[in-house]
Design a binder for these strands. Structure first.
Length: 474
RNA sequence: GCCCCUAUGGUCUAGCGGUUAGGACGCAGCCCUUUCAAGGCUAAAACCCGGGUUCGAGUCCCGGUAGGGGCACCA
């Protein structure tokens, strides 16, 4: 039985790297018809943010990643919040001390050498060899110790990782890491091992930054006589300039992207592709398709750069794949008050294919509510064989035609204007250009002349056309 | 300082000893067209460097270089 877990610490938001870790852990479990677990790693008392739990729940729900066991979903392996498991860690730490695989350390933080000091020779802690009497003595002085892991002086620790292959590190490179802090809480280094074992996690999926600590965790598994899990360490996600993603530098979190107008499903789709590919040339995936296609042995080793351009494209593909009704629903919140009175359904129909990101909508439609200032140079367009003169003539001729037009539906308008073009000997494009331009005041618009006219209605259409003509006559 | 990892176009990637080095985003051009999109077609663009191994290396080995990560009473 595959059992994977996502184990975030409650920092208040879900960044892209976390989202991908959660997603891969979910996909690996679901692919194997296994169980996906949410565990909260809140052992750092200084770092807990209120409401942070909600951010995790909301983020996962938004992403469509559902867990089978978690803080609010007992699966018999709880509690799923590490701060509620304090007694468990204490008990296991004492077992290690009794076995000689861990020891009390009474050093103060300041006593520890800095990296870069001559720590290669003697990186072992002075408390490593304290006699029972000395330990007792310290206790009698009321000093609160930490518990450190006793790493073997000799030998090499090796393990297999599904992404990075065989990794091997000499034990002498490993630190006697702290297992239990002086406040009695475990460190991540200890809690993750105890919890992963107790929760029967079969596959550990986490960031690459844990790769070189994994031998220490395996030593712990061995000390307990536990079997260790399979490992899947994930390369980092970086920016296109090679720097790392950071909220501080203004890089968007998952929630930010959603607020910017990206579909959660598209973000999930894109993030899945950051470091993994299906082995064929598909790029657009639903969650179900991802589950079907995912293969942990096809995860790449090198870090991947997050590309807004590619996200936009994938988002556009997801938007275009929506049914018209579904698109209308997601687009609606972006229309705002300025578009009151317009046929929003018709607008949705017009812009769906042209929308890469919902956040583009307000700007794309701004001209509807208010005609922008524009230069008459816009009436000149080579491709439409449109000049200032032709535009003036066409506008002059077309205004009376449209004044008589009763049916302002797109189809009817198009018939009328096409007929006019034919009779006047103008090309359709040449006829439409000045109309489209006068109606939008922009070099490009989400719809052609008749589509805009139909949207704007007869009165406003005529008003804008006359305005355009005035500009040309001036 | 010590240790671990990585390295194919600008970006994401396929490749797993013999390929015209494939695809996608982006970029440029063309077609389509009621402007723009969308769609179709075309183009430019890559195996970090140096040694080996081999008949033959992007692919295997070693060494550089560059980048990332770790060496916390943070996770």
């Amino acid at each position: 039985m595959f059992r994977t877990r996502f184990a975030p610490s409650p920092t208040g938001y879900m960044h892209i790297g976390n989202l991908r870790t959660a997603l891969y852990a979910y996909l690996i479990a679901k692919k194997a018809k296994g169980v996906f677990i949410l565990r909260i790693e809140d052992t750092d008392q200084k770092r807990n943010v209120s409401d942070a739990l909600d951010a995790i729940y909301n983020g996962l729900a938004l992403a469509g990643i559902t867990y089978d066991e978690g803080p609010d979903k007992d699966g018999g392996h709880g509690p799923y919040v590490q701060s509620q498991r304090k007694a468990i860690y204490g008990q296991y730490a004492h077992q290690l001390i009794d076995q000689g695989d861990a020891y009390y350390c009474f050093c103060q933080k300041e006593d520890r050498p800095e990296p870069g000091d001559e720590r290669d020779e003697e990186r072992r802690d002075p408390c490593r060899n304290l006699s029972p009497a000395e330990v007792q003595d310290y206790f009698d002085q009321g000093i609160q110790p930490v518990v450190r892991q006793r790493i073997p002086l000799e030998g090499t620790s090796s393990f297999f990782d599904h992404v990075y292959g065989d990794i091997s590190i000499e034990n002498k490179q490993l630190d006697d890491q702290v297992l239990l802090k002086s406040d009695g809480f475990p460190t991540y280094n200890f809690a993750n091992v105890v919890d992963d074992h107790l929760m029967a996690i079969s596959h550990v999926i986490r960031g690459q930054e844990y790769l070189s600590s994994t031998p220490k965790y395996n030593l712990l598994y061995e000390a307990f006589g536990w079997q260790y899990p399979e490992y899947i360490h994930l390369p980092h996600i970086i920016k296109e300039d090679g720097k790392k993603l950071s909220k501080r530098a203004g890089d968007p979190t998952f929630e930010d992207l959603v607020n910017m107008g990206f579909l959660p499903a598209a973000i999930v789709n894109y993030v899945a592709l950051l470091g993994w590919n299906p082995g064929d040339e598909r790029e657009i995936f639903s969650m179900e398709e991802l589950i079907e296609a995912f293969d942990m042995d096809r995860i790449s080793k090198s870090s991947a750069a997050f590309s807004m351009d590619k996200l936009r494209w994938i988002n556009g593909e997801h938007i275009r794949a929506l049914s018209p009704d579904a698109f209308h629903e997601v687009a609606l919140p972006w229309y705002g008050d300025a578009l009151r009175g317009f046929d929003l359904q018709q607008i949705s129909q017009l812009i769906q294919i042209r929308t890469d990101c919902l956040g583009d909508i307000p700007e794309m439609l701004a001209f509807l509510a208010e005609l922008p200032e524009y230069d008459i140079a816009l009436f000149e367009n080579q491709k439409s064989k449109s000049s200032l003169e032709s535009s003036k003539a066409i506008l002059e001729a077309v205004i009376p035609v449209l004044e008589k037009q009763e049916d302002f539906s797109n189809a009817a308008l198009f018939e009328t204007l096409k007929l006019y073009a034919k009779e006047s000997g103008n090309k359709v494009g040449t006829t439409m250009w000045p109309i489209r331009t006068a109606l939008s005041g922009a070099p490009a618009s989400p719809g052609g002349a008749t589509e805009l006219a139909s949207l704007l209605g007869k009165e406003e259409t005529l008003r804008r056309l006359r305005l355009g003509l005035e500009k040309l006559l001036a």
